[in-house]
C-alpha cells in the first residue's frame, strides 16, 4: 500500500533539505515528493511517498514535527484521504492504432495535449495505481516516455493545526550603548 506523509512547512530555504534529511539519514528511499506553495505564500505543502514500516514511519513523522520549519507532519497512509497523481506520456504509435490509443486515453480520463504523425502526448490524473495500469496499457501500443508528478494527498477530515504563539525576546533590555 502507498505510504504517504503530508507536511505543511514554511516556505524557506533549507526547509526541504531538513525534511528529506530525516529520511536519507535513515537510509529510506523517497518514492515521490511534491512540494508547492499553499494559499498562504509563506507556507508550502509537501507530499512524500516513502516505504517505511509503520513504527519507524511514526518515529520519522514525530521527528519531522520537531523541525522548526514544519508546522505539521501527518501520516496519510491510514487516514481517510484522497491520493492523486498526474502523468504525462508520449506514445509513438503507428497509424492503425491511433484510434485505439485515443479510446484507452478516454477510458482513463486522459486528455490529449499534443498530437503529431508520430503519436500523442497525453495527460492523465488519477490514483497512482490506476496510472500504473494506464502506463501498462500505453506500453502495449508502442514506445512510450513517461513523466509523473508524484502523489498529492488531501485529508478528508479537517486536522487541527496547533501553532506556537509569538514569544517575547530578551532584546528589550539594552545592555550596552554602541560606542561607534
Amino acid at each position: 500500500m502507498l505510504q504517504v506523509i503530508s507536511l505543511l512547512l514554511e516556505n524557506k530555504p533549507g526547509a526541504l533539505m531538513r525534511v528529506t534529511g530525516l529520511l536519507s539519514q535513515r537510509g529510506y528511499n523517497i518514492e515521490s515528493l511534491t512540494v508547492a506553495r499553499t494559499l498562504d505564500p509563506e507556507l508550502s505543502r509537501m507530499t512524500i511517498a516513502v516505504e517505511v514500516d509503520s513504527t519507524l514511519r511514526q518515529q520519522v513523522i514525530k521527528q519531522m514535527n520537531k523541525l522548526i520549519n514544519v508546522l505539521q507532519a501527518t501520516d496519510m497512509t491510514d487516514s481517510p484521504s484522497v491520493f492523486r497523481e498526474m502523468l504525462l506520456v508520449r506514445v509513438r504509435t503507428p497509424q492503425e492504432s491511433r484510434a485505439a490509443v485515443l479510446k484507452e486515453a478516454e477510458i482513463f480520463g486522459g486528455r490529449v495535449v499534443d498530437s503529431s504523425t508520430e503519436g500523442f502526448a497525453i495527460e492523465v490524473t488519477g490514483d497512482p495505481e490506476k496510472l500504473n495500469e494506464f502506463v501498462d496499457v500505453m506500453r502495449s501500443y508502442g514506445e512510450i516516455d513517461v513523466t509523473r508528478s508524484g502523489v498529492l494527498a488531501i485529508g478528508l477530515e479537517p486536522k487541527k493545526l496547533r501553532l506556537q504563539p509569538p514569544v517575547p525576546t530578551k532584546a528589550g533590555v539594552l545592555v550596552t550603548e554602541p560606542k561607534d
Partner: peptide, 15 residues
C-alpha cells in the same frame, strides 16, 4: 539601523 527585535514567531516550533 538596529531595531531591537521584541518577539519571535516560530509557528512550527512546538514546546
Amino acid at each position: 539601523h538596529y531595531q531591537p527585535v521584541s518577539t519571535i514567531h516560530l509557528p512550527g516550533y512546538k514546546v
